[in-house]
Design a protein around this nucleic acid. Sequence first.
DNA 1: ACCATATAGTCAAGCAGCTTGACTACGTTC
DNA 2: GAACGTAGTCAAGCTGCTTGACTATATGGT
Lengths: 157, 157
Amino acid sequence: MRQGCFNAPVQNSDAMALSAALLAAAGDLTQRIHEGVAARGFADLRPAHGFAFARLAPGGASVTELAAHLGVTKQAASQLVDEVVRKGYAERRPHPGDARARLVVLTERGRACTRAAEEVAAEVVGEWAELLGEQGLYVLRDALARIAPYGPVRPAW
Amino acid sequence: MRQGCFNAPVQNSDAMALSAALLAAAGDLTQRIHEGVAARGFADLRPAHGFAFARLAPGGASVTELAAHLGVTKQAASQLVDEVVRKGYAERRPHPGDARARLVVLTERGRACTRAAEEVAAEVVGEWAELLGEQGLYVLRDALARIAPYGPVRPAW
DNA sequence: ACCATATAGTCAAGCAGCTTGACTACGTTC
DNA sequence: GAACGTAGTCAAGCTGCTTGACTATATGGT
């Protein structure tokens, strides 16, 4: 239980197997959500848009906040906002209390897409529940919550 | 326990929280390995190279096999091989038994980089072990192994 | 009140990594 | 051995990102 244990209790190969499983699960989840959302009528979006929507959904965000969330430059975030605005998923509003900034908020279509993503995620997680059992799923959720960092979303590579 | 349960036992928001935690953990792991490998003297590589090395390490692979593993076209895989060959991490050899194909194998430098990645992964997983305990880590590994698919590696978005 | 500095956002140019299309060399099948 | 399939490369183009430069607004010290 001591910290900084130098005789690593984890073999390198074990660590790689665990890492590979985590990355495979994450990649598969992303792919499944992407496909499921596309199948529900939102085929003009990529996974990156979903991560943006996750930040925009609870009340909107500025371009700079979105850029920090996605881990890209604000120019890149601005281009992404241009795109989702053009496609009708979001709109730019004046920012209350800061005339420089603009608040990017989801439109009804953007919220519908977010709900679709939630449905697909629930579907996939439901499959996991069948594989792991309710308790196993709870344990997984708890473990991931402990090791998952806060901060910007990063690509799995 | 029955399959195809329509009254999903998992709330949408719960599924999104679990999904977000999984993707955050995967993104963080990728970032940590990338930084750790760079700090050990392999700063001219990106995460995608690591995924390629994982496929090349056990005996090499053809460009087409690598492309399937990475989920990209064989032209893209060929360009990636060009790059790691130019940087001294791999080399192209004649393929035994198929004169069309070429076997891409890691050089000693490539194997050293793979070992470095394993070390960093063990470091990160060691931190998880401190957060979860040995048993918690085992349960996580088991759960991920159950839900992780085989097949091509996919980007987390 | 004013000026210096910092921040929000955009415009423009360039680049890296991927795609599609076309092609050659070799293998496989009948 | 003729026809078709597969491995790999070359070439051109596109997309999403970067860096650099700029305007407009906000903030803080004097």
